[in-house]
């Protein structure tokens, strides 16, 4: 019944998508634990969900909006906007040159 553990390639692919870097030990651990967890969550297949609508949100709300042009109470000053940036130059956040 147990799914065989996820391949190293599969784990690395997921890590790449998720933007995560894994150590060798983490790759190994994840390939085992991911498989175990996936095996567990398959118990949902025991439940018949034919014709059941999926729940995106439990709140009974719809059409929640704000009015265009209403006062901006949350504007950040430049000082605030950049206060946590490590690399700031010319009123901008800076990263190493991206190829175009």
């Amino acid at each position: 019944m147990a799914t065989k553990k996820l391949s190293r390639e599969a784990v690395l692919h997921l890590a790449k998508l998720a933007g995560l870097t894994l150590t060798d030990a983490e790759i190994e651990k994840n390939s085992v634990q991911l498989s175990e967890t996936i095996d567990y969550i398959k118990n949902l297949d025991e439940l018949d969900t034919e014709g059941i609508e999926p729940t995106n949100s439990v709140v009974d709300l719809s059409n929640v909006t704000f009015e265009d042009g209403e006062k901006n109470e949350r504007a950040l000053t430049s000082e605030e906007a950049f206060s946590n940036g490590k690399n700031v130059k010319d009123n901008a956040f800076v990263v190493g040159r991206i190829m175009q």
């Binding site: 901006n72 949350r74 504007a75 430049s78 906007a81 010319d90 009123n91």
Partner: peptide, 18 residues
């Protein structure tokens, strides 16, 4: 969010909020 739109010439990152 309520940040001003259309200020193309504005100083970079001057029209931002959380």
């Amino acid at each position: 969010c309520q940040c001003a739109n259309g200020l193309h010439e504005a100083v970079p990152n001057s029209q931002v909020c959380p």
